[in-house]
Simulated scan of single mutants.
Amino acid sequence: MKEFEEFLAKIDDPDHRDRTEKALQWVSEKFPQLKREVKWNQPMFTDHGTFIIAFSVAKKHLAVAPEQAGIEQFLEEIKQAGYDHTKQLVRMPWNQPIDYSLLEKMIAFNIKDKEDYSAFWRK
């Protein structure tokens, strides 16, 4: 995961850095076909040149960005997990476990939904 080393090194809180690294490693292992990239200072995963999911770090949470369609598709599960969200990202608080089952569903949805998509972002 050398693509993410510089990003991870900038996370001051060791616990936040460790949790973020574990999440990125999990995605890399679960979806090895996805390309690891850093764009706009965010680690992200792409598939055939199209955006699948990105991560960012905030003081109180790890933000996961599956695009608006990924959030709308799993809105009830996001709420059930106790996560806050906006139109573009899900906030996974540092004091709660990461719901890897939900994360897997969002990624799998984006891969399938965008399999014939050629643009980076959905329009």
Rank of each mutant, 00 (worst) to 15 (best):
residue 72 E to G: 04
residue 8 L to C: 04
residue 97 P to N: 11
residue 43 P to T: 04
residue 119 A to L: 15
residue 90 V to R: 00
residue 102 L to R: 04
residue 115 E to D: 08
residue 93 P to H: 09
residue 13 D to A: 13
residue 32 P to H: 08
residue 103 L to H: 01
residue 41 N to S: 14
residue 72 E to F: 01
residue 101 S to W: 12
residue 66 P to Q: 10
residue 52 I to R: 02
residue 24 L to T: 09
residue 52 I to T: 06
residue 89 L to K: 11
residue 116 D to H: 15
residue 46 T to I: 07
residue 10 K to S: 14
residue 42 Q to S: 13
residue 89 L to Y: 02
residue 52 I to D: 03
residue 77 E to A: 10
residue 31 F to Q: 07
residue 75 L to H: 12
residue 7 F to T: 09
residue 104 E to I: 07
residue 49 G to N: 10
residue 116 D to S: 13
residue 51 F to L: 10
residue 42 Q to Y: 00
residue 45 F to C: 01
residue 34 L to S: 01
residue 69 A to Y: 03
residue 33 Q to R: 13
residue 23 A to L: 12
residue 71 I to F: 02
residue 5 E to G: 05
residue 104 E to L: 04
residue 123 K to C: 00
residue 36 R to C: 11
residue 64 V to E: 00
residue 17 R to G: 05
residue 108 A to G: 09
residue 22 K to R: 15
residue 113 D to T: 11
residue 63 A to I: 07
residue 38 V to S: 00
residue 88 Q to H: 04
residue 23 A to I: 05
residue 119 A to W: 08
residue 55 F to M: 04
residue 46 T to F: 12
residue 55 F to Q: 01
residue 97 P to R: 05
residue 53 I to G: 00
residue 79 K to N: 13
residue 15 D to F: 11
residue 51 F to D: 09
residue 84 D to P: 04
residue 21 E to F: 07
residue 83 Y to W: 05
residue 110 N to Y: 06
residue 113 D to H: 15
residue 19 R to K: 15
residue 52 I to N: 02
residue 40 W to I: 01
residue 113 D to P: 00
residue 100 Y to L: 08
residue 29 E to Y: 05
residue 80 Q to T: 09
residue 87 K to L: 07
residue 57 V to I: 07
residue 101 S to A: 10
residue 14 P to K: 13
residue 1 M to Q: 08
residue 103 L to R: 00
residue 6 E to F: 01
residue 11 I to M: 05
residue 79 K to L: 10
residue 105 K to D: 09
residue 10 K to F: 05
residue 110 N to H: 02
residue 23 A to C: 13
residue 120 F to W: 13
residue 75 L to F: 06
residue 75 L to I: 08
residue 29 E to A: 08
residue 98 I to Y: 01
residue 42 Q to M: 15
residue 50 T to A: 11
residue 66 P to M: 03
residue 59 K to A: 14
residue 96 Q to L: 11
residue 109 F to G: 06
residue 53 I to V: 14
residue 45 F to M: 01
residue 56 S to K: 00
residue 87 K to P: 09
residue 35 K to S: 09
residue 83 Y to G: 01
residue 89 L to I: 14
residue 57 V to T: 09
residue 117 Y to C: 03
residue 43 P to F: 02
residue 92 M to Q: 11
residue 84 D to I: 05
residue 119 A to E: 14
residue 41 N to C: 05
residue 4 F to Y: 15
residue 98 I to P: 01
residue 47 D to E: 14
residue 123 K to F: 08
residue 100 Y to I: 10
residue 7 F to D: 06
residue 84 D to R: 06
residue 57 V to W: 00
residue 33 Q to W: 04
residue 121 W to A: 06
residue 77 E to L: 03
residue 64 V to Y: 01
residue 18 D to H: 10
residue 87 K to Q: 09
residue 72 E to L: 14
residue 48 H to C: 13
residue 57 V to G: 02
residue 82 G to I: 07
residue 12 D to I: 04
residue 123 K to L: 15
residue 92 M to A: 12
residue 76 E to F: 11
residue 59 K to D: 11
